[in-house]
């Protein structure tokens, strides 16, 4: 645990000095804020939280996926990972440090979205929990991609199409029944459904929305992605 904590602190210090990475954490809440204040609130026909839930769902599917991928690739490219391994840092400690850092920051971002939406009490807790679940799935998927990325360029080349597939296919699925059925197995669609359910205007009028099914699908996704991660790790390890 000492090594995981050291990696966590290192990543915190490094991210605070990395504007590009900071922007990725701030971008979605900032756009949601602007859209809410200047589009949703002045317009009575649009729900006040529509942009917040929309951008929160996008954040959970995109940023926590690209972050671990980019961090692992950068550490491989600069050969820093090699020195950590030589210092006795176990791969799972390294991944715990990086993944833990992204999860903590993502939780703060989730809290920012929730505050912006004015959620409180159980609603706040449920919203943050859904965001954490979605972010956790994205982090493991991002770390899996990071295993195959040799440098930052390949991290972008590998990560972007996968991120687009997971983050945007659920949105496109709204217009296509068949695609909707296929993507219903993706955690990103379920995270989106759950998060959008916090916007009262998006819920079905017959009160038929169930919370159990999406959560089970997200958990199943986490298990499948974790298995993929273990298989990828056994095949490739963390060598640069």
């Amino acid at each position: 645990m000492r090594s995981a904590k050291a990696i966590f602190v290192k990543q915190l210090r490094d991210t605070l000095k990395n504007r590009v990475m900071l922007i990725q954490f701030v971008l979605f809440p900032a756009i949601a804020f602007v859209m809410t204040e200047f589009v949703a609130k002045p317009n009575e026909e649009i729900s006040d939280v529509i942009f917040i839930t929309m951008f929160a769902a996008m954040f959970a599917g995109m940023t926590p996926l690209m972050m671990p991928n980019t961090i692992i690739a950068e550490d491989k490219e600069h050969k820093s990972l090699r020195f950590l391994v030589m210092a006795g840092v176990k791969p799972f400690e390294y991944l715990l440090g990086i993944g833990g850092f992204v999860l903590v920051i993502s939780s703060f971002v989730a809290l920012a979205f929730a505050t912006m939406a004015g959620f409180s009490g159980p609603e706040l807790g449920q919203f943050v929990l859904v965001m954490i679940l979605g972010s956790a799935a994205s982090i493991i998927l991002g770390a899996t991609i990071g295993i195959f990325s040799k440098n930052q360029q390949s991290a972008t080349a590998l990560g972007t199409p996968i991120m687009l597939l997971f983050a945007f296919s659920p949105m496109i699925a709204m217009f296509n029944e068949r695609l909707s059925q296929i993507t219903s197995f993706l955690y990103t669609l379920q995270v989106r459904e759950l998060i959008l359910s916090f916007d009262p205007s998006s819920l079905p009028s017959d009160d038929s929305f169930s919370y159990a099914k999406p959560i089970l699908i997200i958990l199943a996704n986490i298990v499948v992605i974790a298995i993929l991660f273990v298989l990828a790790y056994k095949k490739k390890g963390l060598r640069g």
Binding site: K5, A6, K10, K79, S80, F83, V89
Partner: peptide
Amino acid sequence: PFETGLMLDEDGLYPRLNGLENLNVFADIY
């Protein structure tokens, strides 16, 4: 491995951190 020190042609330092912060990462690990 813990009792060995290593310096390679590629330094493997974190470019955005300063020297002290770089070494502190390893001080925390050790």
